[in-house]
């Protein structure tokens, strides 16, 4: 999106009139007093946040501010780090996701994740997409599976590029294609929320543009939380932006608001420091 940066601050929303009235809609996920400890050190100091249905919320902030850590709390990926411990309450559709009775496997099917570095499995393109549906028994026969693979790849805007070589290894695609493959893989299990952890940081500008356009299309059907280091990206793709600093959520408001009229001086310093 080769527009000058001031123009890109105008968030592209389907109904631009509603964009002034943010936040709107139902609460999809909410976090109350979420703290994360790595061993003895506290990395997040009590985060409170609501994420609304079908919105794109961007997490920005300097390195080590806790934005990725918070993102990983939302589908309990922090569980995979031995030393990490999470306290507080996170809900998905009013259901506490840290409730011991909740099945984390089910949760991760509902809250999908796209990672910083494209991580296709060393399998064929088809098998990469089919992996999730097969795990969760979403399909009964091969025709249904092929349908899911095709529709997921179409939604990720990759179908036309790979339809003739679904048997080729996923690792043989370019970086941008691999990342779209990973997005298609996440879509294939029909999640409700998609978490993206700096999905474009390993990609070139053209691939980044394609992914950003994709995010824009996807938010009609999914709730998306995206961590980014690129503030222009946050401005381009998100409805609301959260600024993290030293493990605290400093400010969360409509993207246009945060980039034009930040309430907190730390937010302003960060934004102007980058833009100035």
């Amino acid at each position: 999106m080769g527009q000058p940066s001031m123009n890109t601050l105008k968030v592209t929303l389907p109904e631009s009139a509603d964009s002034q009235a943010l936040p709107q809609g139902n609460i999809k996920m909410s976090a109350r007093d979420v703290k994360v400890f790595y061993g003895a050190s506290e990395a997040l100091h009590g985060i409170n946040m609501d994420i609304y249905e079908n919105e794109v919320v961007a997490f920005i902030g300097p390195s080590g501010c806790g934005k990725s850590t918070f993102l990983r709390c939302l589908n309990r990926m922090n569980d995979t780090i031995d030393s990490a411990r999470v306290t507080g309450k996170v809900t998905l559709d009013d259901q506490d996701i840290y409730d011991p009775s909740l099945d984390v496997v089910q949760l991760r099917a509902q809250v999908g994740m796209v990672f910083q570095k494209p991580n296709p499995f060393p399998k064929s393109i088809f098998e990469n997409i089919a992996y999730g549906p097969r795990l969760h028994g979403l399909v009964d026969n091969k025709t249904d599976l092929e349908e899911i693979v095709e529709s997921s790849l179409r939604r990720a805007g990759l179908w036309n590029e790979v339809k003739d070589r679904l048997d080729a290894p996923g690792t043989g695609l370019s970086g941008g294609q691999q990342q779209r493959l990973c997005i298609a893989r996440a879509i294939a299990v029909s999640p409700e929320v998609i978490l993206m952890d700096e999905p474009c940081s390993a990609l070139d500008p053209i691939a980044t543009t394609i992914i950003e356009e994709l995010i824009d299309e996807l938010k009609g059907s999914y709730t998306i939380a995206i961590v980014t280091h690129n503030m222009q990206q946050a401005a381009r793709v998100s409805d609301r932006t959260a600024f993290f600093h030293l493990g605290n959520l400093v400010e969360l408001s409509a993207t246009r608001e945060i980039f034009t009229n930040p309430q907190d001086t730390r937010t302003e310093d960060y934004i102007t420091g980058r833009f100035g």
């Binding site: 496997v105 990672f115 499995f121 795990l135 969760h136 893989r185 299990v189």
Partner: peptide, 24 residues
Amino acid sequence: SLRDGSLGLGATKSETIRKVVLPA
């Protein structure tokens, strides 16, 4: 990252090992 990708799709640990880690 491969393990994370599989776990992030809702695979269990042993599914991840059998279907992603061991083939890799």
